Simulated scan of single mutants.
Amino acid sequence: MEQLHGNIRGLTMTLDVDPQALQDVRERVRRLLAHHRDEDLLDAALVIVTELLTNVHKHTAERRAELDLAPSADELKIVVGDLSEAKPVLQQCDEDAVSGRGMALIDALADRWWVVPNSGGKELHVVVAGVRREGEVIAGTMGCSA
């Protein structure tokens, strides 16, 4: 569902997380940020959203998630909520590890992140600051339905 955050469009959706859903979400993120010229921000957003939703798929019994992308003039806030109370763990992985790097990637790409417990689960909040030219904002125009 399309949401307005100030005068800038954002994205809010509820989804059952599976590989097809991840592909659809990545496309919606691309379209949401299509008018923004910061490729690093787009790349970071795609990796972060994919990693957060992959964690929901791998680590929760009910693979259901709430996703909210809220762009503003100077940053993009990404929130993923799920029904697990288990908090994500930032691990040190060796070079040969084939998994366990998700939160390390998020930590490296995000300006800040934190976990907010809620009734029956949690929300993981991630903020990525964009690099913009004067007068430019993170913006998109798309309609999304859950």
Rank of each mutant, 00 (worst) to 15 (best):
I8D: 02
T14M: 11
A34E: 10
V128E: 04
V79G: 02
Q92T: 13
L11R: 05
L4H: 03
D68A: 06
L67M: 01
L4F: 11
L76S: 13
V98S: 13
V80W: 02
D82Q: 00
Q23E: 09
E27R: 10
D111Q: 08
V131Q: 10
E51I: 07
H36T: 15
V128Y: 06
E39D: 13
D24H: 08
M13P: 01
G10A: 11
T141Y: 03
H35W: 04
D96S: 13
L11Y: 06
K58F: 08
A139Q: 15
G102Y: 02
K58A: 07
H57W: 11
L4Q: 07
E2H: 08
Q3C: 09
S145W: 04
H5D: 12
R9N: 14
D96H: 14
R30P: 01
S84R: 02
L32S: 10
L69C: 10
T54L: 00
L83H: 04
I138N: 04
D43E: 06
T50E: 09
R64W: 01
V137M: 03
N55M: 13
L33Q: 09
G135K: 02
D38Y: 07
Q92H: 10
R64T: 14
N55T: 07
R37Q: 12
L105Q: 07
N55S: 13
Q3I: 15
D94T: 08
G121S: 09
E39I: 08
R132W: 02
M13I: 14
H36R: 06
L67E: 06
L4A: 09
C93G: 01
D74N: 11
V98C: 08
E95S: 10
T12G: 08
S72W: 05
M142C: 07
D68Y: 04
P71I: 05
R132F: 10
D40A: 14
W113K: 10
A108M: 09
V49D: 00
L67I: 07
A44C: 11
S72T: 14
R37K: 14
H36Y: 06
D96F: 15
E62C: 05
I8F: 09
V47I: 15
Q3E: 12
G81Y: 12
H57C: 00
V98Q: 13
M103Y: 06
V98G: 11
V47D: 00
G120Q: 06
R9M: 09
G130W: 04
R112F: 01
A104Y: 06
R63I: 00
D16N: 09
L52I: 03
Q23A: 15
V115S: 01
H5I: 15
H59V: 00
C144A: 12
V29Y: 05
V127H: 03
